[in-house]
Design a protein around this nucleic acid. Structure first.
Lengths: 220, 220
DNA sequence: CGTGAGATTGAGAATTCTCAAAGGTCGTGG
DNA sequence: CCACGACCTTTGAGAATTCTCAATCTCACG
């Protein structure tokens, strides 16, 4: 009884503040967890790829304090809260797995906080690219240091709280430094070592060993 | 069998990467969750007050990816992981309560991300003050809009990723705008409404209705 | 009273932003 | 097959915010 929903690009997969009765796992596409302030500015606080539970919170809190936006067309699988709660109460192991998933989210948020606060714009961009590379690599979606990157420079700007214009200039610098190649939705990291050093990147916070989302659920 | 530990100011309550066999609840004092990058710069990602579980993560992950630093002298109560795990496995309700606690942490991190990214320095400072006020108020530690604030301007700078010098200038502006009074460790918010508007502050993310930390544990 | 941590001030520099315009690329319709 | 429009990306110039570095000041405390 696995329902699947489609969501076009730029639409909300889950809207802020609306009561939910299901949680969603991203099956395909890229999504962003975006928090808006009163002034209308928006901040992407986390990127989601296929396999991620995008709104596990809602099992416990019912409504989200932020929204989940499709950055590309997305497909999501729906899991009714009722069923999830029953499973959680029966299986301490599943409960722990889901808790661990939330812990990883929190760790990722902390890393982003440190990156946003402590790195210059170019390092922030490098860090975001390193994170994406590491996560895609874990999913087997990196070939020869390159991968499909359907994000726009404006999306990157929303993640890092930098101006799109400035993102562009820094991307150009990464290019001219021979660190990346980025054309037509394909990103290639030409010198991962140097890029990681620039980004002060350590993949530990991603907790990539145990698979996330669906798989954790299936295992339990 | 409740062990209590003391920790002097500026010392680590929990060190990054060291395997833990207990989790700690802050009983007294102010602590900060600090993440350091390779370059040595440090970012405080969350403030902790009395009643907060400071390293609940370690129950599941064993070691922290960041450290917990005492900003003032602190006292913490120790809960052995073994006992916690046993309790969690026996009580789905406790498991959910602890999970909810992690969810609140993550929500706070997201809020900080939005604040760091989207607000100018003065708004960030205002936001931090509003958060502290709201949390202390929930603990009954606010009188006439004022409270004890043992943090230095440098601590504030570490939370918001601004320079101490710049914090100072913005604090002065808040003062001259008639928004705050801050002398000798006592902070008074003179115009909470205006301050909250400046900070785009909405206390919802704090999830203050249900008490945190110890109390949640005691209830279950 | 001296001392030291924290707060404050000043001046110049760096990073990042804003606004506005121009270039590219790609799919669609004629 | 070309022209058009939409959406990105890129470029330029000036301005704003924030940083750096260094010195001075304040005040609680021994």
């Amino acid at each position: 009884v696995l329902r699947v929903e489609h969501c076009p690009a730029d639409a909300e997969i889950v809207a802020e503040g609306v009561e939910q009765t299901v949680s969603r796992v991203l099956i395909e596409g890229w999504a962003g967890r975006t928090k808006s302030l009163v002034s209308g500015k928006r901040q992407v606080t986390e990127l989601h790829l296929a396999g991620d539970f995008v709104d596990l919170h809602s099992v416990s809190l019912r409504r989200l304090d932020h929204s989940i936006v499709a950055l590309t067309p997305c497909r999501t699988a729906l899991f009714p809260h009722e069923a999830l709660r029953a499973m959680i109460d029966r299986s301490p192991r599943l409960a722990r797995a889901l808790w661990a998933s939330t812990l990883r989210d929190a760790a990722a948020h902390r890393q982003w906080l440190a990156v946003l606060g402590q790195l210059p714009a170019i390092g922030q961009i490098a860090h975001l690219l390193c994170e994406i590379e590491a996560r895609l690599a874990a999913l087997g979606r990196v070939r020869d240091g390159g991968f499909e990157l359907p994000l726009t420079q404006e999306d990157v700007a929303d993640c890092l709280a930098i101006t799109p214009v400035h993102v562009n200039r820094m991307v150009q610098q990464l290019r001219s430094d021979g660190l990346i190649e980025w054309r037509r939705g394909r990103m290639t990291l030409l010198d991962l070592d140097r890029l990681r050093r620039l980004a002060e990147f350590d993949p530990a916070y991603l907790g990539l060993q145990p698979p996330r989302g669906i798989k954790a659920l299936v295992q339990a």
